[in-house]
């Protein structure tokens, strides 16, 4: 299955987004015409001209194992923020990654929530389970406080300060493809821009776990 994707970026309600400081901010909506093929994609924004103070990162983030799947399928993780891996299944998991930005193996018995893992470099951390080998998940470690995820073909940045931004998108379906970054200037006034990813790609979705019955056993 291949999709052609086009991006439509619009500034929404920019005028109403003035904060008390007087600085110009805008809620910023990214729309993707991919018919759900990039659900959960991580969209990041980086200021092109200099550093801008962003929202503070969460204290921790969690990649849960539930119903013999990773939840969520794709988890954005800011650099330096600890990731924990709570196991909410009745069965044990053995979560691993061989990512160049941090490889690990975690034996996780029922109810386990082991020591969190911290990544100090941005990049992709593909996750698997050595016991349930259909389980696939992704951590996407980002080095910007401005990130959001696509849901139903759109992603919203709240209160993006005025200025020129580089917008990028990441999803396992387009991981190895030459995905461009777009420069967008947020002026604080109404504006709309359409950007496009003009190449075909194959859809990647989270695999369903196989059926589970008490009169059947897995074979490994």
């Amino acid at each position: 299955m291949t999709w052609r994707v086009s991006f439509c970026l619009r500034c929404l309600s920019a005028l109403s987004a003035l904060l008390l400081s007087g600085a110009l901010h805008a809620d910023f909506l990214v729309e993707v015409d991919s018919r759900g093929a990039l659900e959960g994609a991580v969209v990041t924004a980086r200021p092109v001209d200099g550093r801008v103070e962003g929202p503070s990162p969460p204290a921790t983030v969690s990649m849960v194992q539930a119903n013999r799947q990773f939840d969520p399928f794709i988890l954005p993780v800011p650099v330096g923020v600890p990731v924990d891996f709570p196991n909410r299944d009745d069965t044990a998991h053995h979560v691993y990654s061989f990512s160049p930005i941090g490889s690990f193996e975690l034996p996780l018995y029922k109810g386990d929530a082991p020591h969190p893992i911290v990544f100090d470099k941005p990049g992709v951390v593909p996750l698997g389970c050595n016991i349930h080998d259909w389980m696939i998940g992704y951590l996407y470690v980002v080095d910007t406080p401005w990130y959001t995820q696509l849901s139903h073909n759109s992603a919203r940045f709240e209160n993006l300060p005025a200025g020129t931004w580089e917008i990028s998108i990441w999803h396992p379906a387009i991981d190895h493809l030459p995905t461009p970054a777009w420069q967008v200037t947020i002026s604080g006034t109404g504006q709309s821009e359409t950007l496009s990813l003009d190449f075909p790609f194959a859809s990647v979705t989270q695999p369903e776990p196989p059926r589970e019955r008490f009169d059947e056993r897995g074979d490994y």
Partner: peptide
């Protein structure tokens, strides 16, 4: 005994 983890091969 089964091996879990690294590499392209698993053994049991």
């Amino acid at each position: 005994h089964r091996t879990l983890g690294a590499g392209s091969w698993r053994s049991r």
